[in-house]
Simulated assay, not measured.
Amino acid sequence: MAYRVPRHPRIEHHAKHQTRLARLTGLVLLWILVAIMALLAERTIPSQHAPWKALRVVDPVGMATRIKAARSGRDPKLCRAILAKAGLTYRDLPDKTEGDFCVVRDALRIESGMAPLIPADATMVCKEALALSIWERQVVQPAAYELLGQGVTGLEHYGAYSCRRMYGKPDGPVSEHALADAIDLAGFKLADGSRIMVATDWTDPGPKGQFLRRVRDGACKVFLTTLSPDYNAEHRDHFHLDMSGWNKCA
């Protein structure tokens, strides 16, 4: 007959109790460690790199800027609050539908708080205006002072809202311009009155070309879509900047 180990109920009960206690202690220690790590992350990770922290226009561009700008733009009230806190003023515009596919909701026009748009009547949804204001303050102006020795006093553009399909074709995908979620940036007016234009200065090997490439690269970290002369011939004279779709930088 096979040998059977004698059972000791009291010992078995004590062992089970010790096992449960060890598991509970391990779980508590794990949660304490998680809490400590979360506290350290909250205190040490800069806002621009932390997706869970609130978006602020005054923060430098970081790894989380584009994600937070897109997320904040989904909430019209939050988006406007961020603009207002940064000192930007704007005028709300009425919703409208034009033609078969042009729908504008949650649109506004920036009136002050950043280098003025030229022309001024640029209709944009709030998330596009928010991204533009971050880019102007945290990318364009620092690059201008570093590379050109002066600030930018105007952003020249070819338009924001435009009821059309992509590339103005009679059929095909609807352009983000038809939703007021894009702007075509043509150039920059400087404090001394001179201008830097994508059409003429993109290939300049000096400070003008360096500035244009710097601000294009910076736009890729703020907007969801950034298209430049490097993308195709249709963008030889402007940057297309929008807050729709997946990240695309060219």
Rank of each mutant, 00 (worst) to 15 (best):
L88M: 13
C163H: 09
F211V: 07
F101T: 08
S112M: 06
A129S: 15
Q18H: 06
Y161L: 07
R4F: 14
L29R: 09
T19P: 00
V58K: 14
S162K: 09
G187N: 04
V34L: 15
T65H: 02
R74Y: 00
S133Q: 05
V125M: 07
V28E: 04
R43E: 08
W52V: 09
D181E: 08
E128R: 08
H238S: 06
E42N: 11
R105A: 07
T44N: 08
G209V: 07
A70E: 12
M63N: 09
A178K: 05
Y167W: 04
A86C: 07
P142F: 09
A107N: 11
D121E: 12
G218L: 02
A199R: 12
Q141A: 12
L78V: 02
L40A: 14
Y145E: 12
Y90S: 03
I110D: 05
L40E: 05
D201C: 04
H14L: 14
W135I: 05
V174K: 03
I36F: 12
I67D: 11
L88V: 15
V125I: 08
L241W: 01
H157A: 07
K68C: 02
A70F: 10
M197C: 00
E136D: 10
E12I: 07
C79W: 03
C163E: 02
A84G: 10
V5H: 11
A2H: 12
T19G: 01
G193A: 08
F223I: 05
R56Y: 05
I32C: 15
T153H: 03
Y161V: 01
S244F: 03
D217Y: 00
T89W: 04
R195P: 00
G26Q: 11
E111H: 12
T25P: 02
L147A: 10
A2N: 15
W135P: 02
N232R: 11
L117M: 15
D171P: 01
C102L: 11
V61N: 01
T203F: 09
T65A: 04
D192A: 06
W31F: 15
W135H: 15
P207L: 05
A219T: 01
P46F: 03
P173S: 05
H49A: 12
R66Y: 02
R109D: 10
L148C: 11
L130Q: 06
R7M: 13
L179D: 01
V104I: 15
L24W: 13
L24D: 09
A2D: 14
E176S: 05
L212S: 04
E156H: 14
K248W: 10
A35M: 13
